[in-house]
């Protein structure tokens, strides 16, 4: 049985975004579309929040987001994908801005009505999530980055939670997740609650942090062209969060 809290394999060489950016052949395009769709499904909400922050009402923001993804998937989003331009986040934001600037309301409506929706936004209840966010007068671009950062950390957290559940260590995960931000837990009390020694608790915390770190880096790595860019992207997102959060 794999221990979800144990260190996993380190390193990866191909990112989703690099697949998209590097697609040249038909076969490449097929794989690239798959990767792009996955990315869009993962990061739809920051785009939706971005559209909302631009002042569009809820139903209109849903239409625009939906239409944007249709456009991206129809054109494979590859025409403007350029590895030299950096991250998937930047690409997506740039593409959305371009889309918003050029699409008329009618065209968007036509697109939505005439095509199959690529995301079940109603089911995802985007407005409920958006309502959770604090109202702010920040630049929508900064809001987009912040949402992106939240989405990344949440993805990694969900992956870790799923691993723990699969290995029957949900209780350990729930008891120790508070330590992932670097907070020191009350060891004696937590160890007693989880029925482990303090030494074993230290190890579990260490491994949980290590695994989360790997999952988060993997999550970020999906959106950069080169794995070596992960740290830069992490720093950028930290700056985006610190800039508005505190």
């Amino acid at each position: 049985m794999t221990d979800p809290l144990a260190p996993g394999p380190k390193g990866f060489h191909t990112t989703h975004w690099s697949l998209v950016a590097a697609a040249k052949t038909e076969a490449d395009h097929a794989r690239a579309r798959e990767a792009l769709e996955e990315l869009c499904r993962l990061y739809w909400y920051p785009l939706y929040a971005f559209v909302r922050d631009r002042g569009h009402p809820s139903h209109e923001a849903q239409d625009l987001t939906q239409a944007f993804f249709v456009r991206v998937f129809e054109t494979y989003g590859l025409a403007t994908a350029d590895p030299a331009r950096g991250r998937f986040r930047s690409y997506l934001l740039g593409a959305m801005k371009h889309f918003l600037a050029n699409e008329s309301r009618r065209a968007r409506t036509r697109k939505r009505g005439g095509g199959e929706p690529v995301l079940e936004l109603d089911a995802l209840d985007p407005e409920k999530r958006y309502a959770l966010e604090p109202a702010h007068s920040e630049d929508p671009d900064a809001g987009f980055d912040r949402e992106w950062a939240l989405e990344s950390t949440a993805r990694a957290m969900e992956a870790l939670r799923a691993e723990s559940e699969a290995n029957g260590k949900s209780e350990t995960f729930e008891g120790l997740k508070g330590s992932l931000t670097g907070v020191e837990l009350a060891r004696g009390e937590t160890a007693e609650t989880l029925g482990m020694t303090e030494g074993a608790l230290k190890v579990a915390v260490h491994r949980l942090r290590q695994r989360y770190r790997e999952l988060l880096r993997a999550e970020i790595a999906k959106t950069v062209a080169d794995p070596s860019d992960v740290d830069d992207e992490l720093r950028y997102l930290v700056t985006a969060l610190r800039g508005v959060g505190s």
Binding site: L180, T181, R213, L216, R217, L234, L241, R242
Partner: peptide, 11 residues
Amino acid sequence: LCPACLLEGAL
């Protein structure tokens, strides 16, 4: 959980 701390921990 603080997302900034989570991200910093992954550096």
